[in-house]
């Protein structure tokens, strides 16, 4: 555990909590892509099945359980409790176009052809693109609430911090996992455009509106 990994995890946790808090506090999930949240719930479920087979540490298990529970709680808020506020007309990204290629790629490019390992690989690939429905929704409406942009910033920063963690681990531990690194780079690159808008607008106290 190094500082990049820890801040990455905390940033990830913060993102998830910001989203839950935003929906709960405003009693509304408008501007939030339910489809991205379905993908994230799929990611955590596929990746953390090793909770049942392999114990790493209390920290590891607790975080996994929080991520899974928060993902399903978010889905419940969007699709059940605050269903009336869900932006379904704008949330139209076809997630099967992400799910199918990730599943296929996981079957072909993995560390080992076992069920858990293929599911882990699938979750890594899927996570890298899971934000696309959300970014699509923001681009379609042309704006995002400030709290939603904080959520996106924290969520995007998490994988960027993991990239620094992997550079650190490569130099100091000789560790590297090519699948995670390549997917992590893809994931971070997808946020770059958003990071630029966040820094140039939201930090300066303006709303995140996309340039026309």
């Amino acid at each position: 555990m190094n500082i990049f990994r820890l801040t990455g995890d905390l940033s990830h946790l913060l993102a998830i909590l910001i989203l839950l808090w935003k929906i709960w506090k405003t009693r509304s999930c408008s501007g939030i892509s339910g489809r991205s949240q379905i993908l994230f719930a799929t990611v955590y479920t596929a990746r953390y099945l090793d909770l049942f087979t392999n114990f790493v540490s209390v920290y590891n298990s607790v975080m996994k359980i929080i991520f899974i529970a928060a993902a399903f709680a978010t889905l419940y808020l969007i699709y059940v409790k605050f269903k009336a506020t869900y932006d379904r007309n704008h949330d139209t990204f076809r997630i099967e176009f992400l799910l199918a290629p990730c599943a296929l790629l996981a079957l072909i490019l993995n560390h080992e052809f076992t069920i858990l390992e293929v599911l882990w690989t699938f979750s890594i690939y899927l996570e890298s693109v899971a934000i696309l429905p959300q970014l699509f929704l923001v681009s379609k409406t042309g704006e995002a609430e400030t709290i939603t942009s904080h959520y996106l910033f924290a969520l995007g920063s998490y994988r960027a911090l993991y990239l620094l963690n992997w550079i650190y681990r490569y130099y100091f531990e000789g560790f590297f996992d090519l699948i995670a690194i390549v997917a992590g780079i893809v994931q971070t690159v997808l946020y770059c455009d958003f990071f630029y808008l966040y820094i140039t607008r939201v930090i300066k106290g303006r709303a995140l509106k996309l340039p026309a």
């Binding site: 990994r5 995890d9 990830h12 090793d50 087979t53 392999n54 790493v56 540490s57 590891n60 975080m63 996994k64 991520f67 560390h111 080992e112 076992t114 858990l116 390992e117 882990w120 993991y162 963690n165 560790f175 996992d177 699948i179 995670a180």
Partner: peptide, 10 residues
């Protein structure tokens, strides 16, 4: 080795 039994990252 980065197989499932060695994965400590989240």
């Amino acid at each position: 080795q980065t197989l499932i039994e060695n994965k400590d990252e989240l």
